[in-house]
Each structure stands twice: as C-alpha cells, then as structure tokens.
C-alpha cells in the first residue's frame, strides 16, 4: 500500500511544480480557454496513438503541439474570432479522437482512463516523463521570467523592446501542451483545466509578486493533490474528481477573503 501511495505522492509533487509554473502563466495570460481547448483536443492524439498502436504519450505530444501552434496562430492573428475558433478546435480534437477509437478494434477501456486519469496508477516511466517536463519548465521560467511577466502585463511594450513576442507566446503554448501531456495519466484531460487554474487563482490573492504566486500555487496544488490521494485511497473513489472537489472548495473559501 505505501508503495502505491509513495509513487502517487511523488507524482503529486512533480505535478504541483508544473501546476505552479504553467498554471500561473495560464491565469495571468488569460489563456484558460486556450488551455481547455488544447487539453480536450488532445483526445485526438490519444485516439490516434491507440489506433496506430504506438505510445499514446508520443502521439498525444505531437498532436497537442500541433493544436498549440494552430491556437497560437488563431490568438495572434484572428483576434476577432478567437473565442469561437478556440471552441471549434476543442471539439475538432475530441472528434478526431472518437473517430480513431471507433476504427480501433477491440474494447477500449483504456481510452476512458485518459479522460479522468488516475494518480494512484502512475508508473515509474510516467514519473520520469514528469520529472523531465518539470526540469524544462523550471529552466524556462528562470530564464524567461522577466519576459513572461512583461508579456502578461503589456505585450506591445515587450514587442517594442525588440523581443519576438509571437515566438515567446508560441513557446508558452508549447510548454502548456507538454504539461498537459505529462498530466494525462495522473489527472486525465477533462479535469486538467480546473486543477491548473484553481491553485494560481487562490495564490494570486495572497501574493504581490509573480514568483511568489508560482511558489504558493505549487504548495496549494500539492495540498489538494495529497489530500485527494489519501481520501480516494481510503474510500476507494476516483482521485481526480476528489482532488477537483477539494480544490473548488479551497477556491470558494479563498473568495471569502476580501481583495
């Protein structure tokens, strides 16, 4: 039993670091719906992976990065219809996934597990992928902190400083995609959005500087995930919905604090 919980707690730590960094960036850049679109659309990559019989992680990685690039183009060059196009891509990705699942022979119970994930069933290879993703995220936020912060505040000013803001924005979306893929096993694609955005939404109320938001979000995310793991283990419930319930309750409590 402790082995099982141990592995999932490690996964929780790695996940929390990622949520702190990418979740905070998503919230301050108001990229929640784009993230939702990539996350749900990534089901296309899962379907393709299962159909081709290749690694689902690899196929999903390629597919989500493709979606991220399309969404980057949409949000930079089609501002007026951004909102609707985000919704279209969201549905398009899921449809691709379902069609490929239909074409795949045999019963695909596996597919469901990707929708909601299960942090209690995360394996060692998943942990490795999560650790690598964390390293990429930490490295990126350290080097690009000032740029990301300037991008969230006033992207035009950053552009005027001679910095390629389109490239920076695409890089942010690609980081988001990688983080979504790393979380698929543990929390699935349907509830990712809540788990990525709730901790930073709470943290920003209690912090003045962006790096403090990142650190506090990680800590909050870990508290939610760890308590979710314990509750779901003892009561034999799916962990992801429990974690999201706890997080939503936390968000509700934090809203009582006057800003």
């Amino acid at each position: 039993m402790w082995d099982l919980i141990n592995t999932s707690i490690y996964a929780g730590i790695l996940l929390s670091i990622a949520i702190g960094i990418i979740g905070s960036l998503i919230v301050v850049n108001k990229a929640t719906s784009i993230t939702g679109s990539i996350a749900h659309g990534s089901f296309g990559g899962i379907g393709i992976g299962l159909y081709l019989g290749v690694s689902v992680i690899v196929s999903t990685l390629f597919f989500t990065i493709l979606l991220a690039i399309v969404l980057g183009v949409v949000s930079l060059y089609f501002q007026d219809r951004k909102d609707s196009l985000i919704g279209v891509i969201w549905a398009l990705g899921m449809s691709v996934g379902i069609i490929f699942l239909n074409l795949t022979s045999g019963y695909q119970a596996d597919a469901l597990s990707y929708l909601f994930g299960n942090i209690l069933l995360v394996g060692d290879s998943d942990l490795k992928f999560m650790a690598i993703t964390d390293l990429v995220l930490i490295f990126s936020i350290v080097f690009l902190y000032n740029r990301f912060l300037a991008m969230s505040y006033d992207i035009e000013f950053l552009r005027l400083r001679g910095i390629n803001v389109s490239l920076l924005y695409f890089y942010f979306l690609i980081l988001t995609s990688i983080t979504i893929v790393m979380s698929v096993r543990a929390i699935g694609i349907i509830l990712i959005l809540a788990l990525f955005t709730i901790p930073p939404l709470i943290a920003e109320k209690f912090t003045k500087k962006f790096y403090q938001t990142i650190i506090l979000s990680s800590i909050i995310a870990f508290i939610f995930i760890a308590s979710g793991i314990l509750i779901s283990y003892y009561y034999d419930l799916s962990p992801t919905p429990i974690i999201v319930l706890i997080a939503s309750f936390g968000l509700f409590l934090s809203m009582l604090k006057r800003s």
Partner: peptide, 11 residues
C-alpha cells in the same frame, strides 16, 4: 495580475 511597480518600471 500579481505585479509590483518596480517590476513594471524595470520592463
């Protein structure tokens, strides 16, 4: 967004 005056001026 969580940003203080100094962060902005430094931009």
């Amino acid at each position: 967004i969580p940003i203080v005056v100094e962060d902005i001026v430094l931009q």
